[in-house]
């Protein structure tokens, strides 16, 4: 994705910035889809009816955002010259689609890309395990998202800024909900406290990746389209510390952080998610549903 690597860029600079925007949008979309998918697994299995409903609302917010972003990413993708299109995603299914010269749609990007082309952070693909893990995962992400979309309101890209405006309302509520549950579990019973602390301890190593900017994020930040995630880290830590303080939860000592999601190097979890998520589209290609 080096802007000087292809001769095309000399004649036509648009495809390259389109590439960056595409990758950036996909990263946002993949995050939304994967967390939405994970949370949707709770539907029908929640600890109490009211919270089952609450969690599903959140899942629907994430999936709704994923759709808007995939639609926008599809627009970017369709603008690319055909040789670029065949170069970006290596899945046979998408290659076939590109070769027939049809325009890709939101679903093609969600259902026909292989795991290594997914850009979501590792945190979000981690399994639900129990209510405490689910809450911890959401809380880490909601706090990040709240800051990210607050920043993206000012994006020079109008579509992203419009999506940010809608998302920020949703995420503000998500953060409130997950913060309260961190506090409830942390402060509740001995059992809930130890479960909450354990979930925080085990998921902590997946939080670092949120703040490590990849090349795309750097370029997008420079252009005023995206946000450099590193710039959000202090504010994120302040939210975490304040909620943990009320919840009587300790910040884990471990400093080693996992990463790789943004480059498509995932944990084993993503494969299983995609096996379910993409099953229909892969088993019955090219059909309307």
């Amino acid at each position: 994705m080096n802007p000087n690597s292809t001769p095309d860029s000399y004649r036509d600079p648009i495809p390259n910035s389109t590439m960056e925007l595409l990758t950036y949008t996909l990263q946002l979309a993949d995050n939304a889809l994967i967390i939405g998918h994970r949370i949707s697994e709770w539907c029908g299995h929640g600890p109490v009816l009211e919270q089952d409903i609450a969690l599903t609302n959140t899942s629907l917010d994430h999936l709704g955002r994923a759709r808007s972003l995939y639609q926008y990413a599809a627009e970017q993708f369709n603008k690319l010259p055909v040789e670029k299109k065949t170069e970006i995603f290596s899945s046979v299914a998408l290659q076939n689609l590109v070769s027939t010269a049809v325009q890709v749609q939101e679903d093609d990007l969600a259902y026909l890309r292989d795991g290594w082309d997914f850009k979501n952070v590792l945190l979000l693909e981690q399994p639900n395990i129990d209510w405490a893990y689910t809450i911890a995962r959401s809380f880490f992400y909601d706090a990040f998202n709240f800051l990210l979309f607050s920043g993206l309101l000012k994006s020079k890209d109008e579509t992203l800024s419009a999506i940010a405006e809608k998302s920020l309302k949703e995420v503000t509520y998500h953060l409130r909900w997950s913060s309260e549950w961190v506090i409830r579990l942390g402060d509740g019973t001995e059992e809930s406290h130890s479960r909450m602390q354990k979930a925080i301890d085990e998921l902590w190593m997946f939080t670092g990746e949120l703040f490590v900017a990849d090349d795309t994020e750097k370029v997008m930040a420079q252009q005023g389209i995206g946000i450099d995630p590193l710039s959000l880290q202090d504010a994120w830590m302040a939210i975490v510390k304040s909620v943990f303080g009320e919840a009587n939860i300790n910040i884990p000592a471990g400093a080693w952080m996992q990463q790789g999601g943004k480059e498509g190097r995932h944990t084993e979890q993503l494969g299983y998610i995609l096996a379910e998520l993409q099953f229909m589209q892969r088993a019955y290609p090219g059909m309307e549903w």
Binding site: L49, E50, A54, E180
Partner: peptide, 20 residues
């Protein structure tokens, strides 16, 4: 009506259950 552990949660549950 609905069940909730406290007023805050009751308010949020009401939002999630009755204003979808």
């Amino acid at each position: 009506s609905l069940h909730a552990a406290d007023a805050q949660m009751a308010m949020e549950n009401a939002r999630d259950v009755y204003t979808r």
